[in-house]
Amino acid sequence: MRPMPAAWVSGRRVLVIVPAWNEQASIGTTVSEIRACVPEADLLVVDDGSSDHTRQRAAEAGATVCSLPYNLGVGGAMRAGYRFALRNDYDIAVQIDADGQHDPRYVPTLVDRLSEADVVIGARFATADDPYKVRGPRRWAMVLLATVLSRLAHTRLTDVTSGFRVSNRRAISLFARHYPAEYLGDTVESLVIGARAGCVIRQEPVVMRPRMAGRASHSPVKAAVYLLRAVFALFLALVRDWPAQLDDSAGASTAPTPQPSATSEPPRARGVTAPEDRATEQVEP
Protein backbone atom coordinates (compact mmCIF):
# COMPACT_ATOMS: atom_id res chain seq x y z
CA MET A 1 0.00 0.00 0.00
CA ARG A 2 1.11 3.50 -0.76
CA PRO A 3 0.96 6.23 1.82
CA MET A 4 -2.07 8.54 1.69
CA PRO A 5 -1.80 10.40 -1.60
CA ALA A 6 -1.38 14.14 -1.31
CA ALA A 7 -4.31 16.34 -2.23
CA TRP A 8 -2.81 17.57 -5.50
CA VAL A 9 -3.01 14.12 -7.03
CA SER A 10 -6.73 13.76 -6.25
CA GLY A 11 -7.07 10.28 -7.64
CA ARG A 12 -5.20 10.93 -10.87
CA ARG A 13 -2.30 8.79 -12.02
CA VAL A 14 0.87 10.75 -12.54
CA LEU A 15 3.96 9.71 -14.50
CA VAL A 16 7.25 11.58 -14.32
CA ILE A 17 9.30 11.16 -17.51
CA VAL A 18 13.03 11.91 -17.33
CA PRO A 19 14.97 11.94 -20.61
CA ALA A 20 18.59 11.13 -19.89
CA TRP A 21 21.62 10.83 -22.10
CA ASN A 22 24.98 10.16 -20.47
CA GLU A 23 23.92 11.62 -17.14
CA GLN A 24 25.45 9.06 -14.79
CA ALA A 25 26.78 11.80 -12.49
CA SER A 26 23.41 13.36 -11.76
CA ILE A 27 20.68 10.84 -12.63
CA GLY A 28 20.84 9.04 -9.27
CA THR A 29 20.35 12.20 -7.22
CA THR A 30 17.65 13.45 -9.58
CA VAL A 31 15.69 10.21 -9.33
CA SER A 32 16.00 10.04 -5.53
CA GLU A 33 14.89 13.65 -5.22
CA ILE A 34 11.86 13.11 -7.44
CA ARG A 35 10.90 9.99 -5.48
CA ALA A 36 11.22 11.89 -2.20
CA CYS A 37 9.31 14.98 -3.34
CA VAL A 38 6.50 13.34 -5.33
CA PRO A 39 6.18 9.79 -3.99
CA GLU A 40 2.66 9.60 -5.48
CA ALA A 41 4.03 9.62 -9.03
CA ASP A 42 5.50 6.78 -11.05
CA LEU A 43 8.87 7.44 -12.56
CA LEU A 44 10.16 6.52 -16.00
CA VAL A 45 13.72 7.31 -17.02
CA VAL A 46 14.21 7.12 -20.78
CA ASP A 47 17.85 6.24 -21.21
CA ASP A 48 18.65 7.35 -24.73
CA GLY A 49 21.40 4.98 -25.75
CA SER A 50 23.79 6.27 -23.10
CA SER A 51 27.32 4.93 -23.23
CA ASP A 52 27.89 5.39 -19.51
CA HIS A 53 26.17 3.99 -16.41
CA THR A 54 23.01 6.10 -16.66
CA ARG A 55 20.82 3.02 -16.85
CA GLN A 56 22.31 1.33 -13.78
CA ARG A 57 22.36 4.51 -11.68
CA ALA A 58 18.71 5.22 -12.49
CA ALA A 59 17.63 1.66 -11.72
CA GLU A 60 19.59 1.61 -8.46
CA ALA A 61 17.84 4.80 -7.40
CA GLY A 62 14.51 3.07 -7.98
CA ALA A 63 13.27 4.31 -11.34
CA THR A 64 11.71 2.26 -14.11
CA VAL A 65 14.20 2.53 -16.95
CA CYS A 66 13.33 2.38 -20.62
CA SER A 67 16.53 1.95 -22.59
CA LEU A 68 16.49 2.91 -26.24
CA PRO A 69 18.85 0.85 -28.42
CA TYR A 70 20.51 3.99 -29.78
CA ASN A 71 20.35 7.74 -29.37
CA LEU A 72 17.13 9.26 -30.67
CA GLY A 73 17.51 12.74 -29.20
CA VAL A 74 15.30 14.36 -26.60
CA GLY A 75 12.31 14.36 -28.96
CA GLY A 76 12.55 10.64 -29.65
CA ALA A 77 13.03 9.82 -25.99
CA MET A 78 10.10 11.97 -24.94
CA ARG A 79 7.78 10.47 -27.52
CA ALA A 80 8.67 7.05 -26.14
CA GLY A 81 7.83 8.41 -22.69
CA TYR A 82 4.48 9.84 -23.79
CA ARG A 83 3.62 6.61 -25.55
CA PHE A 84 4.35 4.74 -22.34
CA ALA A 85 2.06 7.17 -20.50
CA LEU A 86 -0.71 6.67 -23.05
CA ARG A 87 -0.46 2.89 -23.11
CA ASN A 88 -0.50 2.68 -19.34
CA ASP A 89 -3.36 5.09 -19.04
CA TYR A 90 -1.77 7.89 -17.06
CA ASP A 91 -3.76 11.07 -16.48
CA ILE A 92 -0.81 13.39 -16.14
CA ALA A 93 2.72 13.32 -17.54
CA VAL A 94 5.49 15.41 -16.02
CA GLN A 95 8.71 16.04 -17.91
CA ILE A 96 11.82 16.69 -15.81
CA ASP A 97 15.45 16.99 -16.97
CA ALA A 98 17.98 14.50 -15.68
CA ASP A 99 20.64 17.10 -14.94
CA GLY A 100 19.04 18.33 -11.72
CA GLN A 101 18.09 21.76 -13.05
CA HIS A 102 14.42 21.27 -12.34
CA ASP A 103 13.23 21.23 -8.75
CA PRO A 104 10.54 18.52 -8.37
CA ARG A 105 9.03 20.49 -5.46
CA TYR A 106 7.26 22.58 -8.11
CA VAL A 107 5.41 19.58 -9.54
CA PRO A 108 2.26 19.88 -7.36
CA THR A 109 1.98 23.59 -8.24
CA LEU A 110 2.35 22.87 -11.94
CA VAL A 111 -0.17 20.05 -11.79
CA ASP A 112 -2.67 22.28 -9.99
CA ARG A 113 -2.61 24.68 -12.91
CA LEU A 114 -3.79 21.88 -15.22
CA SER A 115 -7.28 22.82 -14.02
CA GLU A 116 -7.14 25.65 -16.56
CA ALA A 117 -4.71 24.30 -19.15
CA ASP A 118 -3.60 21.25 -21.13
CA VAL A 119 0.12 21.99 -20.90
CA VAL A 120 1.83 23.93 -18.12
CA ILE A 121 5.45 25.03 -18.54
CA GLY A 122 7.74 25.58 -15.58
CA ALA A 123 9.29 28.81 -16.82
CA ARG A 124 12.32 30.92 -16.06
CA PHE A 125 12.45 34.69 -16.63
CA ALA A 126 8.82 34.99 -15.51
CA THR A 127 9.55 37.21 -12.53
CA ALA A 128 11.89 40.20 -12.25
CA ASP A 129 13.97 38.63 -9.48
CA ASP A 130 14.69 35.37 -11.32
CA PRO A 131 18.34 34.56 -10.59
CA TYR A 132 18.76 32.53 -13.79
CA LYS A 133 20.61 34.72 -16.29
CA VAL A 134 21.29 34.16 -19.97
CA ARG A 135 22.98 36.78 -22.16
CA GLY A 136 23.89 37.54 -25.76
CA PRO A 137 22.54 35.76 -28.85
CA ARG A 138 21.21 32.90 -26.77
CA ARG A 139 19.08 35.36 -24.82
CA TRP A 140 17.85 37.04 -28.04
CA ALA A 141 16.88 33.67 -29.43
CA MET A 142 14.94 32.87 -26.27
CA VAL A 143 13.14 36.23 -26.35
CA LEU A 144 12.26 35.83 -30.02
CA LEU A 145 10.95 32.31 -29.55
CA ALA A 146 8.98 33.36 -26.47
CA THR A 147 7.41 36.35 -28.23
CA VAL A 148 6.26 34.41 -31.27
CA LEU A 149 4.92 31.51 -29.22
CA SER A 150 3.13 33.85 -26.82
CA ARG A 151 1.15 35.20 -29.76
CA LEU A 152 0.41 31.73 -31.04
CA ALA A 153 -0.74 30.48 -27.64
CA HIS A 154 -2.57 33.70 -26.69
CA THR A 155 -0.80 33.91 -23.34
CA ARG A 156 2.42 35.32 -21.93
CA LEU A 157 5.25 32.78 -22.25
CA THR A 158 8.77 33.68 -21.15
CA ASP A 159 10.65 30.40 -21.44
CA VAL A 160 9.60 28.14 -24.29
CA THR A 161 12.84 26.16 -24.32
CA SER A 162 12.18 24.90 -20.82
CA GLY A 163 12.08 21.13 -20.58
CA PHE A 164 10.06 21.29 -17.37
CA ARG A 165 6.39 20.81 -18.12
CA VAL A 166 3.27 18.88 -17.25
CA SER A 167 0.62 17.64 -19.67
CA ASN A 168 -2.87 16.28 -19.25
CA ARG A 169 -4.37 13.36 -21.14
CA ARG A 170 -5.28 15.41 -24.14
CA ALA A 171 -1.74 16.70 -24.54
CA ILE A 172 -0.30 13.25 -23.80
CA SER A 173 -2.25 11.66 -26.63
CA LEU A 174 -1.13 14.44 -28.95
CA PHE A 175 2.55 14.22 -27.97
CA ALA A 176 2.48 10.42 -28.15
CA ARG A 177 1.92 10.83 -31.88
CA HIS A 178 3.69 14.08 -32.66
CA TYR A 179 6.83 14.84 -30.80
CA PRO A 180 9.42 16.12 -33.25
CA ALA A 181 12.94 14.76 -33.21
CA GLU A 182 14.38 17.77 -35.02
CA TYR A 183 16.53 20.45 -33.41
CA LEU A 184 14.54 22.39 -30.78
CA GLY A 185 11.58 20.25 -31.79
CA ASP A 186 11.29 18.77 -28.33
CA THR A 187 10.56 22.16 -26.81
CA VAL A 188 9.61 24.85 -29.31
CA GLU A 189 8.02 22.84 -32.09
CA SER A 190 6.08 20.63 -29.71
CA LEU A 191 4.52 23.78 -28.24
CA VAL A 192 3.61 24.98 -31.71
CA ILE A 193 1.96 21.62 -32.36
CA GLY A 194 0.11 21.87 -29.06
CA ALA A 195 -1.12 25.38 -29.76
CA ARG A 196 -2.14 24.45 -33.32
CA ALA A 197 -4.09 21.45 -32.04
CA GLY A 198 -6.00 23.73 -29.70
CA CYS A 199 -4.31 22.83 -26.43
CA VAL A 200 -4.37 25.55 -23.78
CA ILE A 201 -0.80 26.39 -22.82
CA ARG A 202 0.09 28.23 -19.62
CA GLN A 203 3.25 28.86 -17.67
CA GLU A 204 4.15 28.90 -14.01
CA PRO A 205 7.25 30.74 -12.74
CA VAL A 206 9.94 28.44 -11.41
CA VAL A 207 13.50 28.98 -10.27
CA MET A 208 15.91 26.64 -12.02
CA ARG A 209 19.17 25.47 -10.55
CA PRO A 210 22.52 25.29 -12.27
CA ARG A 211 23.45 22.04 -13.98
CA MET A 212 24.64 19.46 -11.46
CA ALA A 213 27.44 17.94 -13.52
CA GLY A 214 28.66 17.63 -17.07
CA ARG A 215 29.08 20.09 -19.87
CA ALA A 216 27.98 23.69 -19.87
CA SER A 217 29.60 24.92 -23.05
CA HIS A 218 28.53 28.43 -23.91
CA SER A 219 30.92 29.95 -26.41
CA PRO A 220 29.77 33.04 -28.37
CA VAL A 221 30.00 31.12 -31.65
CA LYS A 222 27.78 28.37 -30.31
CA ALA A 223 25.33 30.96 -29.05
CA ALA A 224 25.15 32.59 -32.48
CA VAL A 225 24.65 29.23 -34.17
CA TYR A 226 21.94 28.54 -31.63
CA LEU A 227 20.19 31.78 -32.58
CA LEU A 228 20.29 30.93 -36.29
CA ARG A 229 19.05 27.39 -35.78
CA ALA A 230 16.35 28.64 -33.44
CA VAL A 231 15.07 31.10 -36.04
CA PHE A 232 15.07 28.37 -38.67
CA ALA A 233 13.39 25.85 -36.39
CA LEU A 234 10.73 28.36 -35.41
CA PHE A 235 10.09 29.32 -39.02
CA LEU A 236 9.72 25.67 -39.99
CA ALA A 237 7.47 24.91 -37.06
CA LEU A 238 5.20 27.76 -38.06
CA VAL A 239 4.90 26.97 -41.78
CA ARG A 240 4.60 23.25 -41.37
CA ASP A 241 1.53 21.13 -41.91
CA TRP A 242 0.26 19.47 -38.79
CA PRO A 243 -0.34 16.64 -38.20
CA ALA A 244 2.82 15.42 -39.84
CA GLN A 245 2.61 12.74 -42.49
CA LEU A 246 6.11 11.46 -41.87
CA ASP A 247 5.63 11.19 -38.12
CA ASP A 248 2.22 9.62 -38.57
CA SER A 249 3.52 6.44 -40.08
CA ALA A 250 5.96 6.11 -37.19
CA GLY A 251 3.49 6.68 -34.40
CA ALA A 252 0.22 5.36 -35.76
CA SER A 253 0.95 1.65 -35.73
CA THR A 254 1.21 1.33 -31.98
CA ALA A 255 -0.41 4.35 -30.39
CA PRO A 256 -3.75 3.26 -28.95
CA THR A 257 -5.41 6.62 -29.51
CA PRO A 258 -6.93 6.76 -32.96
CA GLN A 259 -7.23 9.50 -35.56
CA PRO A 260 -5.44 12.85 -35.44
CA SER A 261 -8.89 14.27 -34.75
CA ALA A 262 -8.53 12.86 -31.26
CA THR A 263 -6.32 15.83 -30.58
CA SER A 264 -9.17 18.28 -30.99
CA GLU A 265 -11.58 16.37 -28.81
CA PRO A 266 -11.13 14.78 -25.40
CA PRO A 267 -9.36 11.45 -25.84
CA ARG A 268 -11.49 8.39 -25.35
CA ALA A 269 -10.83 6.10 -22.46
CA ARG A 270 -8.87 2.97 -23.23
CA GLY A 271 -11.76 0.61 -22.71
CA VAL A 272 -13.99 2.25 -25.28
CA THR A 273 -11.60 2.47 -28.19
CA ALA A 274 -13.25 1.55 -31.44
CA PRO A 275 -12.53 -1.94 -32.81
CA GLU A 276 -10.53 -0.74 -35.80
CA ASP A 277 -8.22 1.06 -33.39
CA ARG A 278 -7.64 -2.05 -31.36
CA ALA A 279 -6.70 -3.85 -34.53
CA THR A 280 -3.89 -1.42 -35.27
CA GLU A 281 -2.53 -1.99 -31.82
CA GLN A 282 -2.15 -5.72 -32.15
CA VAL A 283 1.24 -7.10 -33.06
CA GLU A 284 1.50 -9.55 -35.90
CA PRO A 285 2.40 -13.04 -34.67
Binding site: L236, R240, D247
Partner: peptide, 12 residues
Amino acid sequence: LFEMLRRHRLRE
Protein backbone atom coordinates in the same frame (compact mmCIF):
# COMPACT_ATOMS: atom_id res chain seq x y z
CA LEU B 1 12.97 22.37 -50.77
CA PHE B 2 10.64 24.64 -48.86
CA GLU B 3 7.56 22.69 -49.87
CA MET B 4 9.15 19.36 -48.98
CA LEU B 5 10.20 20.65 -45.58
CA ARG B 6 6.73 21.99 -45.00
CA ARG B 7 5.17 18.63 -45.79
CA HIS B 8 7.66 16.68 -43.67
CA ARG B 9 9.13 15.02 -46.73
CA LEU B 10 12.65 16.18 -45.96
CA ARG B 11 14.66 16.48 -42.76
CA GLU B 12 16.58 19.62 -41.91
